[in-house]
Amino acid sequence: MDHFEQELARMMRDSQEYIPFASEQRERLREGVRARRRLRAATVAGGSVLLVAGLTAGLFLLPKGPAVDRPQGPLTRPGTSSSSSPAPSTSSPAVSPTQSHAPGTPTGTGTTGGSSPPSTFPSGSVDPTTFPPNPPATTATAPATSTVAQGTRTARPPVSSPPAGSHSSG
């Protein structure tokens, strides 16, 4: 620190004069504190209002957005199970005739697999009652073949049952 810098520091210190903390300055300071406190309160209140408004708007708008753009999935039907494959079960020849004759089991496998015509044979429609002319004749002549024939007929319900009727009518 050279001479000029020392003199500069001395001038800065010597130029200080005693100024008391007057009452008007004290009052001004308190007023400044009150004003800043009000400003802080207003800022906090404004921020809270904006936050609530933003959250409200977000909650109001959010549920509508994704529902519109969501792709529509396959409709689930009440009587069918989605796990089974549709085609092979309806026309599957592997189903044993005894199962097709049984009241509970054949209808369950047949209807669940056949998703295309489920409404025509709801549950117990595979019974011989759906084919009134055939059961008495076939069951009387040959029981084993009749069961096979019935099993194949139940596999194709709409076409197989009324061929004679369709020919006669048409």
């Binding site: 130029s15 200080q16 004069e17 005693y18 100024i19 008391p20 903390f21 300055q25």
Partner: peptide, 9 residues
Amino acid sequence: TARWSALFH
């Protein structure tokens, strides 16, 4: 009150 004068300078 104690430091007003110095701070003001």
